[in-house]
Amino acid sequence: MENITTEQLKARLDAGEQLHILDVREADEYAAANIGALLLPLSKLRQMDTEGIDNWKDEEVIVHCRSGKRSMEACMLLETMGFGKTVNVVGGIMDWQAKFGDAKIG
C-alpha cells in the first residue's frame, strides 16, 4: 500500500489521468457527499465482495473514505485478495472538502 495526499490526487485528476478511485464509506455517507468515486463499502469488502472491481486487480486502485482509516484497512484487504497496487488517500473526503469543497472527479 502506498499513500497519496488529496493535493496529489487532484493534480493527477486535473492532468487528465484515468484513475480507478474507490470510496469505501457506507451508502448514506456517499449520498451526503461524494467526489464521484465508485462506491464499494468496507463492510462489503470485509465479506470479500469485490463485485464491480475485479477487473482492477492489475491496475492501481486509489481508495478513500471519510478520514483515511477505513481506506487503509480496505487497501490491506484488497491486497490480500490479489489487488497488486493499492493507494490510500490520506485524510479522506474530509481533507478533500477542506481543500477543494465539493469538487468532483472526472
Score class of each variant (00 low, 15 high):
residue 100 F to M: 08
residue 12 R to A: 08
residue 10 K to D: 10
residue 9 L to E: 03
residue 47 Q to H: 01
residue 34 N to F: 08
residue 36 G to Q: 07
residue 36 G to M: 06
residue 58 D to K: 09
residue 22 L to C: 02
residue 98 A to Y: 04
residue 37 A to T: 11
residue 95 D to F: 11
residue 15 A to W: 00
residue 50 T to F: 03
residue 75 C to T: 05
residue 22 L to K: 04
residue 24 V to R: 04
residue 101 G to V: 13
residue 93 I to V: 15
residue 64 H to F: 07
residue 23 D to I: 04
residue 14 D to L: 05
residue 23 D to N: 00
residue 80 T to I: 02
residue 81 M to E: 06
residue 57 K to H: 07
residue 66 R to T: 05
residue 66 R to S: 05
residue 65 C to G: 02
residue 22 L to A: 04
residue 60 E to Y: 02
residue 12 R to C: 00
residue 41 P to N: 03
residue 13 L to I: 15
residue 49 D to Q: 08
residue 27 A to N: 04
residue 61 V to S: 00
residue 34 N to R: 06
residue 96 W to L: 12
residue 79 E to W: 02
residue 59 E to P: 09
residue 31 A to E: 09
residue 2 E to D: 11
residue 59 E to R: 14
residue 11 A to V: 10
residue 3 N to C: 06
residue 53 I to M: 03
residue 15 A to P: 00
residue 15 A to Q: 10
residue 40 L to I: 10
residue 78 L to C: 07
residue 57 K to N: 06
residue 10 K to Q: 13
residue 103 A to H: 08
residue 91 G to D: 06
residue 31 A to N: 07
residue 59 E to M: 12
residue 19 L to K: 01
residue 71 S to F: 01
residue 41 P to Y: 00
residue 69 K to P: 04
residue 103 A to I: 12
residue 32 A to H: 14
residue 2 E to R: 13
residue 106 G to M: 09
residue 83 F to Q: 10
residue 24 V to Q: 05
residue 100 F to L: 09
residue 56 W to A: 04
residue 97 Q to V: 15
residue 48 M to E: 14
residue 4 I to Q: 02
residue 38 L to M: 13
residue 11 A to W: 03
residue 48 M to G: 11
residue 89 V to W: 00
